[in-house]
Design a protein around this nucleic acid. Sequence first.
DNA 1: AATGAATGAGGGTTCATTCAT
DNA 2: TATGAATGAACCCTCATTCAT
Lengths: 204, 204, 204, 204
Amino acid sequence: MARKVGSSGAETAQKLRESALTLFAKDGYAAVSMRAIAAKTGVQAGAIYNHFPNKQDLLRELMVVHMETLLAAWEEVDIQDLGPAAQLESFVRFHVRYHLRRPKELFISYMELRSLEDTALSEIKCLRREYEAIPRAILERGKADWSFSLAEPAVTAMAIIAALNGISIWYKDSGRLTVPEIEDIYIALAARMAGQIKKGVANV
Amino acid sequence: MARKVGSSGAETAQKLRESALTLFAKDGYAAVSMRAIAAKTGVQAGAIYNHFPNKQDLLRELMVVHMETLLAAWEEVDIQDLGPAAQLESFVRFHVRYHLRRPKELFISYMELRSLEDTALSEIKCLRREYEAIPRAILERGKADWSFSLAEPAVTAMAIIAALNGISIWYKDSGRLTVPEIEDIYIALAARMAGQIKKGVANV
Amino acid sequence: MARKVGSSGAETAQKLRESALTLFAKDGYAAVSMRAIAAKTGVQAGAIYNHFPNKQDLLRELMVVHMETLLAAWEEVDIQDLGPAAQLESFVRFHVRYHLRRPKELFISYMELRSLEDTALSEIKCLRREYEAIPRAILERGKADWSFSLAEPAVTAMAIIAALNGISIWYKDSGRLTVPEIEDIYIALAARMAGQIKKGVANV
Amino acid sequence: MARKVGSSGAETAQKLRESALTLFAKDGYAAVSMRAIAAKTGVQAGAIYNHFPNKQDLLRELMVVHMETLLAAWEEVDIQDLGPAAQLESFVRFHVRYHLRRPKELFISYMELRSLEDTALSEIKCLRREYEAIPRAILERGKADWSFSLAEPAVTAMAIIAALNGISIWYKDSGRLTVPEIEDIYIALAARMAGQIKKGVANV
DNA sequence: AATGAATGAGGGTTCATTCAT
DNA sequence: TATGAATGAACCCTCATTCAT
């Protein structure tokens, strides 16, 4: 059959991306069928292949776009003129805010690494290392200039990211805490983890 | 064909459990076939059903046994006479040590919740809440007796667990740090997150 | 692979129906595999599911269509202006002729009731009762107007139908008797069973 | 494991026969698994093979025993000194009474012919022809001595048997009619089908 | 005579993917 | 671009049967 009236290729592709993201996040890549993605989008399974070469590539694209968007978004945050403590605060605020609004992307970004085949996996790992370097660099800079007191910037950076990502496990829109409140709590936690040397460390 | 000479039911069941654990951890529940589990165990797929009623139940059993063993192991740790700071240290040391030796159990325990069907899911969630209550209780006790200075024991407890679990993402047996070193680092991190009020907080 | 050149959905569905009917009649529903139906039709097993949701539904459809077609065909027979004796003759002639040309439908219609699951079973039983009401009504009318002399119209109606259906057990296209001859024999038998009160009852 | 206390081979074999008969009658040979038969009997599937060489043979034995018992039971009925009309009455009464008490045997005897493999099938067909010869012989004798007026004894015999077997389709223990009443009705019907020439033909 | 553990085949069904339309 | 029909492989699971115990 011909194209449905009013449908356009780019639109369908985008809707497919969204359906796939939602389903992958909920059930996992392996448990989601192309038919399920198609059904959620309102097309037949065959139509997917007009937009994506195969299932694996659909996942790859979602993850690459997520990581690249994440990195690009961080580029927008101006921390040039800040000291390490303020930089760490900026990073935590950015990470929490960014991910609490994109829980599905965060989820598959961490859970579906194992579903990626070789080339895509390296690609993603590379982008991820790039992102993980951000807090590590901040911690290292802070250690160097005595803003922070910590022995293991690399381990601490991973611990901070893990703690932040853990939010998504228990966070609910309808919960007791608002996003800004959560940001503040985790900013204080990160400061403590970094051994921030200053008077005004908030009481977590 | 009948039973192989020298084979025994309990042995096969245990080997199946181990195969399933390894494969589920590596590829995810949905991506692992019963044939793959059987092959890794050295039996035919049909033989699995002499030991487990179905695939779902195999996962369920792995997760329940893991959580129950974990809770039982914690029961063995005597923290009765310790103050909150020492209790937190005990918990962190226990958690790191326990899980670094069981990375697969930890992995599926967090990743395959979504693969569990309703009843099994509630069962596991219940056990998990029980475990998460341990650090929260320690933090609350420490907050009450001014061992710790922190505003949100519940959030902080989750953050500590998340940070600890994050170890499994980067930890490698062949890595730079030994398990005791990692324990020490995270004990210090947890102490900081808890706002431990003492002179001798190690420099992380 | 995609659709074969020249194949069409409706055609395949019809061929599947015919294959299933033949195989169900010969070997019984439970003994026939979807693969066997597919092979007889010249497609792969998976292709069946483009046309029927599952095996059970394939049987259901065959039985429902058979019963509805049978009832519709009887509607075509005009017995409005006939007396009970002629009506009974019409019915017997109709039933024999209809079923001797559709032995497979008759067979599964009686043999595979037990293979139907609950909803389908009620549906079929309802249609069957509707058909069995036809001869019973004729017998009751004939009893009322003294065309027939019989005590138990309901039992006799069932006995007539059973006798008629029994033909399919021994009938062979190549046998001694032609269909019209068989019709005549059973018309006479039915008349006798009904206690038809007339001079000209044929000598069976 | 060894034999259960109190169990005996012959007992188990008989219980297996009964389980198989019940299940075959309810669900059909192909739909019944050896495990189901074993479970209903209270043993494991493997135990069946101590008593029957395989599934097919279990069916065969049930059918052969049924047919042989049926024929033997008919041998007990003394019709030596009766005329054809009384013989037909005896036969009908015997058949109805025998089968209404053994509905499962009757059912599989007619339904599972197709499940028999070659040799068993011939064996059963042979026994069945022997039984069907009984009413045919009566009808032929009655035709010869002018007790009956009918053209086709063979067809009529089959029609009578079919009508009788049809009882099992609608008969219920709790129904309106008692077994003796049903016997009387069908005796009268059979007499009519045979064209019995006598004053006292009951009004059906 | 029975169990329980195993096999190898096959069950119904779903899958990612292809392609004529 | 989309559909719908198809493939061939794979899915989970059950089967009849075997045999060491």
